[in-house]
Simulated assay, not measured.
Amino acid sequence: MSLTSFVALPEVKNRLKQEYETPRIQCVQEIQISPRTQSYGLTGTAFDYLMRFWIETLNLNAETKRWVAESSVVLLEEGQLPASSALKKTARKLLREAVTCHSDYIKTCKLNDDIISTSIQLAQLDAIYRAGYIDPNLGKVDKLIIDEMRDMLKLAKEKDFTAKSYCALNPVFGEASLLVGGADADLIMDGTLIDIKTTKSGKMDMSQFHQLIGYFILNKLGGVNGKQIKINRLGIYFSRYGELVTFPAENIENDKFPQLVKWFRKTAENTQ
């Protein structure tokens, strides 16, 4: 299970619907970069990696965590998923090359096909850990996705992602993350928790709102990367629009919030 699947459970979804009305938040302009393939999930995960790498070049003191793709390779090596020796060798090779490519990109800040391809390959590996899915095209990269991701990254504004004091990439929520089978957000910056979405829609829907609430609750329960972080705002970066939209966290933390947190924890524990 994941946070996304947990908040989608009927019991959880109905409780959150009862407590909160989904804010009417949407992008101002029209979509700028439309999908060029039908590999929506792969493109979205790959862009998450690329976007976080780019943000890291803007915030060299950012807190970073081990890539989920690294956990995928561990799963294969330990035999927790059936895999041939050839597949294991390919996964190790891709990860080794990704580490080198990422390091070079952080040093040079030069966006090229190599770092974009690396992001796509990491996304392919990522699916092994998150969904137990082994991409039959592991290691192969579609040029259309490379071009699409490059154009999306060009929309991102440095001022929106340059932190004044604190930046955490792919933050986790301590033991609270384990309540929902593991949970990691995309970005926390100066008290704002941001989820990166590569969707065609530029409007925040109920499931996205509930996911943000879930992250907010997990932070209350377990902190971020081993410490308590005050989250003042929540938001979504719509990568196909180049727009970051946020709203105050106080809209969530009302008088009933403490009871909701207790219910959330108990429900998660009972669901495991």
Rank of each mutant, 00 (worst) to 15 (best):
K93V: 09
L95M: 12
A98D: 03
V99R: 04
V99K: 07
D104C: 06
D104Q: 13
Y105N: 03
Y105S: 04
T108G: 03
C109N: 08
N112A: 07
N112R: 05
D114M: 08
D114G: 03
I115R: 00
I116L: 15
I116A: 08
S119R: 05
S119M: 12
I120C: 03
Q121A: 04
A123M: 05
I128W: 06
I128S: 00
A131T: 14
G132C: 09
I134F: 06
K140P: 01
V141K: 03
I145N: 04
I145Y: 01
E148H: 08
M149V: 14
M149T: 13
R150H: 09
D151H: 13
A156H: 03
A156T: 15
E158G: 04
K164E: 15
C167P: 01
C167G: 01
A168W: 15
A168F: 15
P171S: 05
V172W: 00
L178S: 11
V180E: 00
G181P: 02
G182L: 10
D184T: 11
D190Q: 11
G191L: 10
T192H: 11
L193D: 01
I194A: 00
T198Q: 05
T199H: 11
T199K: 10
K200E: 15
M204T: 06
S207G: 04
Q208L: 12
H210Y: 09
I213S: 01
G214A: 10
Y215C: 04
F216W: 09
N219Y: 08
G222V: 09
V224N: 00
V224M: 05
V224T: 09
G226L: 13
I231F: 10
